[in-house]
């Protein structure tokens, strides 16, 4: 069902997301659920290196979007660091991580290599790896293992056009499609909470509900070890 009276419109790769009254809080709550599923505790400082038009960024705090009553920072009683994903800004991240202790860095896969190189250049890679969780955001498939990159603690599946946000579970290592948010029909995944085109899962294995106790009614997506970047 199309969003009624949308007042926020985001062009994303392959589509558009439109939000009306009350929509943003539904998705901020879901994003907070995703972070908890990936093992991020309340009170955390979460830094996100992504574009401002990505929900992983703009749902970060109520300060970023009108109509968002409680973003991730408010739901975690934590802090949110806005790090734009442009190359110019990625090069600044090591100096910022040196100033502030961050619990989780959530970063787009396509800029991970650049950040890893900058961290190495500044002699900060080992410290970063030890002191924070790195969550790597990918689209269709988790990136293959690359030893020169900062090693992810978790992966986070994000298909922008479908507003598909599926966290890698700390219990089962699979990616949860949360009950009530997504519906699975064959290999087609439908968003139940926002008007968005369905997403066809071309690779990966789908497991039906009861696969994992962390979300007993969730469908899960699993990848081979290589597919999980291992």
């Amino acid at each position: 069902m199309p969003t009624e009276n949308p007042y926020l419109l985001f062009d994303v790769p392959g589509g558009q997301l439109a939000f009306g009254d009350g929509d943003l809080d539904v998705w901020a709550e879901h994003l907070a659920w995703c972070y908890r599923m990936m093992g991020i505790p309340d009170g955390s400082t979460i830094a996100v290196q992504d574009y401002g038009s990505s929900p992983i960024s703009f749902l970060g705090s109520s300060l970023l979007m009108p109509g968002l009553r409680r973003g991730v920072a408010e739901r975690f009683d934590g802090r949110f660091i806005c790090l734009d994903a442009s190359a110019e800004r990625v090069t600044l991240t090591p100096a910022l991580l040196a100033q502030l202790s961050v619990d989780a860095l959530v970063i787009r896969e396509d800029v991970l290599e650049l950040l890893s190189a900058e961290l190495r250049k500044k002699g900060f890679a080992d410290l970063a790896q030890r002191t924070m969780k790195t969550i790597v955001v990918f689209g269709d498939e988790p990136p293959a293992l690359n030893p020169v990159r900062l090693q992810p603690s978790r992966h986070f599946m994000h298909v922008e056009s479908a507003l598909l946000l599926a966290p890698q579970c700390v219990k089962c290592d699979c990616f949860h499609l949360r009950e009530g948010f997504y519906e699975v029909d064959g290999r087609m995944i439908r968003n139940l909470r926002l008007a968005a085109p369905p997403y066809y899962l071309s690779r990966g294995e789908l497991f039906g509900p009861s696969h994992c106790a962390a979300g007993i009614h969730d469908w899960c997506i699993g990848w081979s070890p290589r597919g999980r970047g291992i």
């Binding site: 949308p6 007042y7 926020l8 419109l9 985001f10 062009d11 994303v12 790769p13 574009y51 401002g52 038009s53 703009f58 009108p66 109509g67 734009d84 994903a85 442009s86 800004r89 922008e160």
Partner: peptide, 14 residues
């Protein structure tokens, strides 16, 4: 913009 009674649009990227 929202308080002034407008709609906001955002493009993808930076």
């Amino acid at each position: 913009i929202a308080r002034l009674g407008g709609r906001c649009a955002f493009f993808w990227g930076s």
